[in-house]
Design a protein around this nucleic acid. Structure first.
Length: 399
RNA sequence: GCGCAGGUGGCGGAGCGGUCAAUCGCACUUGACUGUAAAUCAAGCGCCCUUGUGGCUACGCAGGUUCGAAUCCUGCCCUGCGCA
């Protein structure tokens, strides 16, 4: 008995995209859907009610963080993630695999992210040297890491990750994988991928709960042939859905998505891990991605960047000081309906937390509704026109 | 009027003879942010330019000592506190 049910309602002509409905033990979600990230069982700065109001119907939390605090046993005792955080809908947890990357790289301030932008150098030896940072060590059986909170040592294996995720109790959980740096060599990528594949099988074997759906993760970095091999292998295993993870070249992320989703079984849902820029969302959906989780809207919001149909803009700029109109004219979110740009500008300048909250509500609403609108465009056959129109306007303010 | 303390870049505040255009914090400006070590991070922040082991003007004002002064001396102006 599968834990989830996925029904495709409409397919895009001439592309892999589709609109569907994903039903979980905690309710159904129309796909494609944007999945806000609530790392520590909370989407930063907003209440579950505000989150729900923004249109989000599903949330992703993080195994690594909840394991460290408050501890997965506590979440289990609370009745599981959804009940614990008072979110009345489907939830999912990341396996902790991403922390193997993000803790290991100390990416902040070093320009190392999983999406390699045009112009960035792939032979960045400096980054390679920093790859095996002090916080994480990966071996065949798992990853040993130090807590970023208190420095204590911990170890995740596929079985451990699954056990923790079962305690946390989200509807959808992910296999334990390794997210590698975009600067990794081909040889290292091959080894990492082989290990991620072994971990996928072991994650599956470790699973005991029938009311959770386990998604396998396709890796392979920037290498099309490795991505293809990964998609074939992961698709051959008994997963209820799939995650597409790892690092990409911004340029050919779309090619890799088309390649991978051309291989993954059509009838199972696909989740693009951690991807979230407006353009990427369109390209992903067109190429058959059903779910996207991303911290971007909430992180940008807290850092003072607002999303709008005319592109991103910085609320802190003086030009917003006396702009007594909504952040985005046609936006129906709580923040735009009730507050002016000037007020938000003031809140940010004064470092008031309501600023973070309103900005987060807005950005969340923006992303969730963008994906909803895209879904609608698939349903009524106007996807390509909508995409062209939206991106033309959105790109105006984007460099 | 006398005594004491003090006047440094937008603000607070270091420096107390050379390596000072001046530590640091705030503010300000610009940039970044894609499975959240992120209410964070990076860069800039006297003026000028051909952007540099560059030029110019600067630490209340005016003089002086010294090879050299934000730093020492003299006078003046101003601020705070105390006493008349």
């Amino acid at each position: 008995m599968p834990a989830i049910e996925f029904k495709i309602e409409k397919k895009l002509k001439g592309a892999l995209g589709r609109a569907g409905v994903l039903t979980t033990p905690h309710g159904a979600v129309e796909t494609p859907a944007f999945v806000p990230v609530g790392t520590q069982a909370t989407v930063k700065a907003v209440s579950p009610e505000e989150l729900w109001e923004s249109g989000a119907k599903i949330v992703l939390a993080n195994t690594y963080h909840l394991y460290l605090q408050p501890g997965d046993a506590t979440v289990a005792k609370a009745g599981g993630l959804a009940k614990f955080m008072h979110f009345d809908g489907p939830t999912m947890t990341d396996s902790g695999g991403f922390q193997v990357f993000s803790l290991g790289f100390s990416e902040k301030g070093r320009g190392v992210t999983k999406v390699l932008k045009e112009g960035a150098s792939a032979d960045n030896n400096d980054a390679e040297e920093n790859a095996h940072a002090r916080l994480v060590r990966v071996d065949e059986d798992g990853a040993t890491f130090r807590s970023h909170r208190d420095g204590s040592e911990h170890r995740f294996t596929p079985a451990r990750s699954i056990a923790i995720q079962e305690n946390i109790g989200a509807d959808i959980i992910f296999a334990f994988d390794e997210c590698t740096s975009p600067f990794i060599t081909r040889e290292a990528m091959e080894q990492s991928l082989a290990r991620t594949h072994r971990w996928a099988r072991r994650s599956l074997e470790a699973k005991t709960r029938a009311d959770q759906a386990l998604f396998g993760i396709v890796q392979g970095g920037r290498y099309p042939d490795l991505r293809e091999a990964s998609a074939r292998y992961i698709a051959s295993l008994d997963f209820e859905g799939f995650g597409i993870g790892g690092s990409f070249d911004k340029d050919d992320m779309t090619n890799i998505l088309a390649l991978v989703n051309g291989i993954l079984p059509e009838e199972k849902p696909r989740h693009m891990l951690g991807i979230g820029e407006v353009g990427d969302i369109f390209e992903g959906i067109e190429r058959g991605v059903d779910l996207f989780d991303c911290v971007l809207p909430t992180r940008l919001a807290r850092n003072g960047t607002l999303l709008s149909s005319a592109g991103r803009f910085d609320i802190m700029k003086v030009e917003n000081k006396t702009k007594f109109e909504p952040m985005m004219e046609e936006c129906a979110c709580y923040a735009c309906a009730n507050y002016t740009t000037a007020y938000l500008h003031h809140l940010f300048k004064a470092n008031e937390i309501l600023g973070h909250r309103l900005a987060s509500i807005h950005n969340l609403h923006f992303m969730v509704h963008l994906v909803k609108n895209i879904r609608q465009s698939i349903m009524d056959g106007s996807f390509f026109e909508y995409k062209k129109e939206f991106l033309a306007s959105y790109a105006k303010n984007r460099a």
